[in-house]
Simulated assay, not measured.
Amino acid sequence: MRELDVVVIGAGQAGLSAAYHLRRAGLEPERDFVVLDHAPRPGGAWQFRWPSLTYGKVHGMHSLPGMELTGADDGRPSSEVIGAYFDAYERRFELRVHRPVEVKAVREGGSGGSEGEGGRLLVETSEDTYVTRALINATGTWDRPFWPHYPGQETFRGRQLHTADYPGPAEFAGQRVIVVGGGASGTQHLMEIAEVAAATYWVTRRPPVFREGPFGEEQGRAAVAMVEERVRLGLPPQSVVSVTGLPLTDAVRRAREEGVLDRLPMFERITPDGVTWADGRTVEADVILWATGFRAAVDHLAPLKLREPGGGIRVEDTRAVRDERVHLVGYGPSASTIGANRAGRAAARSLTRLLKQTGSGTRAAQGVPA
């Protein structure tokens, strides 16, 4: 078993930001910390995005710290653009990400102190077992698509898929498609599919809120604060995007004028041939696309018993309240690209101080500032 000061789980925006700031604090990759990633190649969750999501359609992509993303082709798939950028970033800062590595569990190591007070953590993976003083969890949400259950769902004779598996619009040509979900991905998929499908229907639990005008810093802070409050209370985090509303772009305006974004309330049950509402209305469909969001991928942390009665992990800044050795980045209020950058820096600084207090042998513990 390899003993380290920090293990970073995840090499998306938050994980790479954290690794960058650990290096700036004087910790060396492989000697003092490792970055583990389950994905087959660089790019975080971006590498799994559908091909029709070009870089020009991406909203609010912020560069990683220390290296700008410049000269990107707006017509190129975002998975390729951002994947290449993350790859170049890892090489430039010699972060040496281990992949593909599955983290199976994180549990108490039982040496070097009592639980939660300086003791080691064991990180059990498909590659090795690591003994670490601290952990930065940057696993995001992509691995946990949320599938709601409705009566009759198992009887549907058509195809059901989640937005995580969305292949692009071509596969839906000539079909009748129900898109469930009022978020940004749901509307993007719906507008693409409507161009080739025989019929489309948009179903959401709540009426969508379309946002007029630019989304300024003040609105952004308010949205983040709402998500942050849930995390402080130990509730499952709500996405920042879910509280900001849908931007009323030219494409969205056209879709509304053409009736593509005419929203239907949530159906009551699923039938073998489609869906039905309480008032007796029915719609026949070939496909149900669940654009119903994601949940935080933190099941591997279960042995540490970090969850609160409300179902979430209570976090202050980036630190898990129940265990100061564990920091969560890209979780809740830091689940945006700019939020992930800031969270990575905050976690690295906090853990540098913790390592110094607990007598780590790294340069950071010897007084190198974060």
Rank of each mutant, 00 (worst) to 15 (best):
A138P: 06
D143G: 15
P237E: 08
D279H: 02
R363Q: 14
A251W: 06
P145G: 11
P272Y: 12
Q160R: 14
Q188E: 15
V81S: 04
H98K: 12
T249Y: 01
P303R: 09
A164I: 05
V35M: 07
G332P: 00
T54D: 05
E3V: 13
E124C: 07
A198F: 09
P77S: 05
F215A: 04
A198P: 07
G182K: 04
H59E: 14
P265R: 10
V106S: 06
R269I: 06
V329Y: 05
E217T: 13
S334D: 12
G332D: 04
E258S: 13
F267N: 05
V283Y: 05
G332R: 00
E171D: 15
A364Q: 09
R211I: 08
P207I: 07
G10H: 05
T54L: 08
L22T: 08
T155C: 02
L248R: 10
A184H: 13
P303L: 12
A19H: 06
D262R: 15
T276P: 01
A222V: 14
D73M: 08
V179M: 05
A348K: 09
L36Q: 07
T187S: 09
A347N: 03
E229L: 13
R205M: 11
L264D: 08
E192F: 10
V179A: 11
A11P: 01
G152L: 00
D37K: 02
G330S: 06
G234V: 05
V287N: 11
L36K: 10
G220F: 06
L328S: 04
V177L: 10
T204D: 05
E80V: 14
G71M: 09
P272I: 11
R254N: 04
A251C: 02
T141S: 13
F93I: 10
A347Q: 02
R99Q: 12
D317E: 14
V243Y: 06
T271M: 08
A364K: 08
G158H: 06
K104Q: 14
A45N: 09
A19D: 03
P42C: 09
L355I: 09
P148V: 05
P265H: 01
W277K: 02
D299L: 11
Y150N: 03
L289A: 12
R314L: 00
D250C: 03
Y331I: 03
A296P: 11
R314K: 14
L328F: 08
R91E: 15
W290M: 04
S63E: 00
R91V: 11
L16Q: 00
L69N: 11
L355G: 11
G259W: 04
V103F: 00
R363D: 15
T204W: 10
V209D: 12
L328D: 01
L261E: 02
R92F: 09
L264C: 03
F267D: 06
L22K: 11
D32M: 08
I9S: 00
P207A: 13
V298H: 04
G56A: 07
E171F: 14
S78Q: 03
N137I: 13
A25N: 01
R76I: 03
A25M: 02
D128Y: 03
Y150A: 15
T276L: 12
